[in-house]
Design a binder for these strands. Structure first.
Ligand SMILES: [Mg+2]
Length: 463
DNA sequence: TCTGGGGTCCTAGGACCC
DNA sequence: TCTGGGGTCCTAGGACCC
């Protein structure tokens, strides 16, 4: 796989500057991650077709074990289709919390190799090993060592691509994976190293659809140009590709096809948005149902914002009709928020306006979503709380003890917790995100007399 | 076949400012 | 006075990824 001759290929230069072969990017990708975790938890499932995903009428496959893939099942496939292909499959709802726990431990294994780890999802990461010494033998050994440790410690298989750039490393890890050949699973090599000299030979024969960033739409447009392989794209001039795909995508795809990819491995990518959405078993037709769902989605988003210590200034809703037509509406607020009541209120307003415009309830609503964008750390915000328009639900009061029992809920003015729906835990959450840890049990706050009428309070305890 | 949920990035037009 | 242009913010939609 890694033999072959380099032929006059443009490269992105010496970003890595390390190792004779310049391979310093690893892409690690767990094999059938969710399904494999489930097999670990229930060993009787080993060797059997396992599908993780929505078991409801509108579910899709999130992950399929290799024995299931033999039947032609793939992820993102509707569960109903998957079960038609493979009726004996075991279908599991999935347990995100446990996948996250496994993921955290796996990422720690990667960080033992290098601190330069960029997680892409729960089961994938890029590693920059240029400072961990990445001579060819060493990079290959690092990759093999990672696979061994992940298997020994977690009992899970992964595939690793090693290359000079993210894009090639990503495609190499794909190529390292087990494959379905006829009716059988053929184990993959597990690690594939593509040296700088071998990049062209590796990339050129691959179908355009294999590229990271080329989906069905882009592939269709390119095939109208008579393009089938990555090599075909590389041979076009960049302007031709741009004319076909637009400036952004066109330049990018043309560069990738020529092995040019300057994107660095980024360790701390800030969160850009937090969202929650839900597809209903039966389309919603009543505005009471819609409002109740929006409140619950807003609540979930708000609580995750607080947990992450973030505020949002732009709230969006997403509405998918029975016809699958999908619309979004968004508002940018005068001030950022993490309050569930405020997010719910603006979400409901946006829906009401949308319904007035488009009569969406008549079509039936298949999905609703609420998203928070334009995020900023809560520490960067003025510490104010909206006063409640009504008494707090759940009876949260100042002086009440915290869930840990270590102290009392801080000295808050009655009514200031009006945005809290869930009782003490949520209250402490809100308080912590707005006032910091010290506010719990020890902090003091007071109502600024001049702010009382504007409905805000301020702590005396600001950092 | 009948299409999840959680994300990222890009485009394009209009408003507004310089 | 007219015209052009660029930058930024906001909104809606779209493509893609796992
Ligand atoms: Mg995977």
């Amino acid at each position: 796989m890694v033999n072959g001759r380099f032929f006059g290929f443009m490269t992105s230069g010496s970003r890595t500057g390390s190792g004779d072969h310049g391979v310093s990017v690893l892409h690690v990708d767990m094999d059938a991650f969710f399904a494999s975790v489930e097999v670990l938890r229930r060993p009787s499932l080993r060797g059997r077709p396992v599908l993780v995903g929505g078991a409801g009428p509108r579910g899709v496959v999130a992950a399929a074990s290799y024995p299931a893939r033999v039947f032609g099942v793939r992820s993102a496939m509707p569960m109903s289709t998957a079960l038609r292909l493979c009726p004996e499959a075991v279908v599991l709802d999935g347990d995100h919390a446990s996948y996250r726990a496994v993921s955290t431990r796996i990422m720690e294994i990667f960080r033992d190799v290098t601190p330069a780890v960029e997680p892409l999802s729960l089961d994938e990461a890029f590693l920059d090993v240029s400072s961990a010494r990445s001579l060819l033998g060493e990079a290959e050994e690092l990759a093999a060592g990672i696979r061994r440790r992940v298997l020994e410690q977690e009992g899970l298989h992964c595939s690793v691509g090693v290359a000079r750039t993210k894009h090639v490393a990503k495609l190499a890890s794909d190529a390292a994976k087990p494959r379905i050949v006829g009716r059988r699973v053929k184990p993959g090599p597990g690690v594939i190293v593509v040296t700088a000299d071998d990049e062209a030979d590796f990339l050129r024969p691959l179908p355009i659809r294999a590229m990271w960033g080329v989906g069905p739409k882009t592939a269709e447009k390119l095939s109208r140009l008579g393009v089938a392989t990555i090599g075909d794209i590389a041979d076009l001039d960049s302007d031709t590709v741009v004319a076909c795909l637009g400036e952004g995508v066109g330049r990018h795809i043309h560069a990738l096809a020529n092995g040019i990819d300057d994107r660095p491995v980024e360790v701390d990518r800030p969160t850009k948005s937090i969202s929650q959405e839900s597809t209903f078993p039966i389309d919603l037709v009543g505005s009471d149902d819609v409002n109740a769902q929006l409140v619950s989605l807003a609540d979930g988003v708000a609580s995750r914002l607080r947990q992450a210590g973030l505020y949002s200034r732009t709230i969006s809703i997403k509405v998918r009709l029975g016809s699958f037509e999908t619309m979004t509406r968004s508002v940018t607020l005068p001030a950022a928020t993490a309050g569930s009541r405020e997010i719910a209120a603006v979400s409901k307003e946006m829906f009401t306006r949308l319904h007035a415009d488009r009569d969406v309830l008549t079509a039936g609503i298949r999905l609703l979503g609420v998203a928070a964008g334009a995020l900023t750390p809560s520490s960067s915000h003025q510490l104010t709380l909206d006063l409640a328009p009504e008494p707090p639900v759940g009876g949260v009061k100042s002086g009440m003890s915290t869930p840990s029992g270590s102290g009392s809920v801080f000295d808050v003015v009655d009514g200031a917790l009006g945005e809290i729906d869930d009782g003490v835990d949520d209250a402490v959450d809100v308080i912590r995100s707005k006032f910091g840890d010290r506010a719990i049990g020890r902090g003091k706050s007071r109502v600024r007399p001049d702010a009382r009428d504007q409905g805000s309070i301020e702590t005396s305890d600001r950092p």
